[in-house]
């Protein structure tokens, strides 16, 4: 038996909106730790890892570890039917081939339940090694989204370079080239508006903008984004989910061979 009650239901709505275009089908894993997911896009270029910790739920009952295969587009369709202020409860019985999403309005005057069919998904769980990153950039998530969107109108790939000068995002395309440099800036009114760069080694890596633009669908989840880079390793683009966990996107670089 599984019963997870999330008072801030809008978080789950935003999570689905952030990953449904990158991943079609995925197994949601439920354990005493929390509600999590790890899935690759169909080309195996990017990987998404989601964690919503059990402590973040108002009620969290998960009698045994359970893996539920879901079509993310269908799940998003159902969650779109929940109001932004609704409380969402996820329910499943042991051995059932369905999951139920229950939506309660804040005043309890409207209660809906949506039952979705589960699916069998052959998924490969990958071990993500702990890494020390050469450079970690924290910046406003809206700024990162703007940069990815702007550069994708010029080129298909972005080179992200971190030096002591700052973080540079560059692209080239048929019509020309573009460079955007963000310098460390901690003298801002709100801490979330800061750009903070921690650099051990200079880094320069090239990525497909198509994917970084998918990642920025998570912008509504967090006002800041953390980009962790090491030469010749996948970049990690992390959006923290307030007091609950995170959505992390890993993207394999393009490498000169």
């Amino acid at each position: 038996m599984l019963e997870l009650r999330l008072v801030q239901g809008s978080l789950l709505k935003k999570v689905l909106e952030s990953i449904k275009e990158l991943v079609n089908d995925a197994n949601f894993d439920c354990s005493s730790t929390g509600f999590s997911l790890q899935a690759m896009d169909s080309s195996h270029v990017a990987l998404v890892a989601l964690l919503l910790r059990s402590e973040g739920f108002e009620h969290y009952r998960c009698d045994r570890n359970l893996s539920m295969g879901m079509n993310l587009n269908n799940m998003a369709k159902m969650l779109k039917c929940a109001g932004n202020d609704d409380i969402i409860t996820i329910k499943a019985d042991d051995g059932s081939d369905t999951v139920t999403f229950m939506f309660e309005s804040p005043t309890q005057d409207k209660i809906s339940d949506f039952e979705m069919k589960l699916m069998d998904i052959d998924s490969e769980h990958l071990g993500i090694p702990e890494a020390e990153y050469d450079a970690i950039v924290r910046m406003p998530s809206a700024e990162f989204a703007r940069i990815c969107k702007d550069l994708s109108s010029i080129g298909d790939t972005v080179v992200i370079s971190v030096t002591k000068e700052g973080v540079k995002f560059s692209t080239k395309g048929d019509i020309g080239a573009a460079n955007i440099v963000c310098r460390q800036n901690t003298t801002v009114d709100k801490p979330d508006d800061a750009t903070v760069i921690e650099m051990k080694e200079p880094v320069s890596l090239q990525f497909a903008l198509r994917y970084t633009n998918f990642f920025t669908k998570a912008t509504p989840l967090s006002s800041t984004v953390t980009i962790s880079l090491s030469n010749e390793l996948p970049v990690v683009v992390e959006y923290k989910i307030a007091e609950m966990g995170y959505v992390r996107f890993y993207l394999a670089p393009k490498i000169e061979e």
């Binding site: 769980h125 990958l126 394999a252 670089p253 490498i255």
Partner: peptide
């Protein structure tokens, strides 16, 4: 030549 690496060349099945 620039090649797109696969995530599977960095992370392995558990």
């Amino acid at each position: 030549m620039i090649r797109q690496k696969s995530i599977l060349s960095f992370f392995h099945k558990t």
